[in-house]
């Protein structure tokens, strides 16, 4: 019971902090907007209609990818909150409380994932505003899938941050993880048409399965999926479990 309430209160804190950060919410529109409008339209018209997938514009193709990218970047960014808490001393208050480290990790992780999910919903809404068709069922189906994707990604961010002492070093690691994961996820292209070596890398990337799942849901029949939806979800699920175990371990050894 104490553990459950500890979990709830840590979750609530992360969500409250996010909702109070207006600048972050407003700026979260901007990057996806650039990708979808400037990059999407720009590359789309360079291809002059020679679209590789019949029935899809380039913007439509990358839209689920940009949703995935938003989840990835937001999730990794959440790791900063751990460093922040360490630097401002609040982590001590949490670590010394009579709740288990697993509860502390899960509370923070699910809280941060909720924040990332809200970011993802904002991008979905942005897509609707740009005229991308998402029916109500697909919209609702996206929510649990997005949450599933963020669990593992947030866990990576929190794990890395738990080993780090300063905000500067976290920034460096971010660019070594964020961009490779993003580019190799097929967010901007079809994985099937890649050369073999790159396909291998893409298939080793957990985000690939997330982007593929989101495309299957959002684009429907016009999209030729890499894997069936249930395989995607199973791979993401296994990845989540592994990362949660690693993250809990990382928090256990944190002082």
């Amino acid at each position: 019971m104490t553990e459950l309430r500890g979990f709830y209160t840590l979750w609530l804190r992360e969500v409250k902090r996010y909702l109070r950060d207006r600048t972050r919410i407003i700026s979260s529109f901007f990057q996806p907007l650039l990708w979808l409008v400037v990059f999407g339209v720009g590359i789309g018209s360079s291809l002059r209609g020679a679209v590789t997938i019949p029935g899809l514009t380039y913007q439509q193709l990358i839209f689920p990818g940009i949703v995935g990218q938003t989840l990835l970047f937001t999730a990794m960014f959440m790791g900063i909150s751990v460093i922040w808490d360490k630097e401002f001393g609040f982590m001590k208050e949490i670590l010394v409380a009579p709740v288990s480290r697993m509860t502390i990790f899960l509370g923070k992780m699910v809280g941060d994932s909720t924040d990332a999910l809200l970011q993802g919903v904002i991008v979905l809404a942005l897509g609707l505003a740009l005229g991308i068709q998402i029916d109500l069922f697909a919209f609702l189906a996206c929510l649990p899938v997005m949450l599933l994707i963020t669990f593992g990604l947030v866990s990576i961010g929190l794990t890395i941050a738990s080993f780090m002492g300063s905000l500067e070093s976290f920034g460096a690691i971010q660019s070594f993880i964020n961009l490779p994961l993003f580019f190799l996820s097929g967010a901007l292209f079809q994985v099937q048409s890649l050369p073999d070596w790159m396909q291998t890398l893409a298939r080793a990337n957990p985000l690939t399965y997330g982007v593929d799942a989101l495309r299957t849901i959002i684009l429907g029949g016009t999209w030729q999926p890499l894997y069936p939806l249930y395989v995607n979800l199973a791979v993401i699920g296994v990845f989540d479990v592994i990362m949660i175990i690693i993250g809990t371990w990382a928090f256990t050894r944190m002082k």
Binding site: R5, G6, T9, R17, F88, F90, E93, P98
Partner: peptide, 20 residues
């Protein structure tokens, strides 16, 4: 060791929950 993005009362509720 307080969370400065929360109110005083919220900090106290958090602590109360963490300590059961």
């Amino acid at each position: 060791s307080v969370d400065d993005r929360l109110t005083g009362r919220e900090n106290l509720y958090m602590h109360a929950n963490l300590y059961g």
